[in-house]
Amino acid sequence: MTTIEPETSGASATAAAAPGAAPADAPRTTPAERPSDGEHLLSTRDVSVLYGDNRALKPTTLDFDAGTVTALIGPSGCGKSTFLRCINMMNREIPHCRVEGHIWYGGVDVNAPDTDLYEVRRRIGMVFQQPNPFNKSIYDNIAFAPRRHGVKGRKQLDQLVEESLRGAALWDEVKDDLHKSGRALSGGQQQRLCIARTLALHPDVILMDEPCSALDPIATLAIEQTVRDIVATGICVIIVTHNMEQAARVSDRTAFFYLGEMVETGPTAHLMKMPKDQRLSDYLTGRFS
């Protein structure tokens, strides 16, 4: 029985965790078909994006699993951010932007018109390129959204703030002045505060759009370490980066985008060692930026 079954459920998750495994990456579901529950945490099926009449992203099919980091790489302007913004429907905030295809998450299609946007965004957090803490204290930066979502009680909030800051490896640095403005922190700390703020909503997925591009190398390493720590708790991280070393250091799987097309995907180590597509190998060898 095990011999005939070409791929069992969870195969790609194992492939992701073990970079040495064979590249078993052919999409196993036909495009519009809904993947069976429990197979992947998040699956996009033929997701494409139009800004007006300009198709910025061609149909993209990818799977993401809990407890893994997926890096989205590619030259700038190739649609990485555009793809990322589909997953939590931030593209809906951009006028003239239309998203097609299906994004399966927890048994629902995020891209369906009747999906509860707010519920989805609470469970799929996002960290932006520029650190953007609110004009509030460190404490309130974290407690703000949970409060709006109904978490009450000083004690509960205190606990949530501490737990989130610990999750983002910021607690020890700020525990004595939680009522200082979040804006008063250094860039790297601000970015970790933004991660902590996202963690406070107990998300399943965190989307990061070049979170280190505004930071120095040391702050960058701290963020990368934070990402690995977060993922160890079972969260799925999807991180956009234009830095190949970063992708290699931090990610389990990588997807390469080029000119609005998802060209190749696979376990990071494998993809970097043996790129199949010429465009990816050109990109890796730095033949175009």
Binding site: E93, Y118, R121, N132, F134, N135, A145, C194, L201
Partner: peptide, 26 residues
Amino acid sequence: PRGQRDAGLAMGLTRWETTIHVLIPS
């Protein structure tokens, strides 16, 4: 800054909540 609004929306707050609690105070 646009990032403030995006941050609020990306945490599942409504536009109204984002406006009242993030944009107006700023």
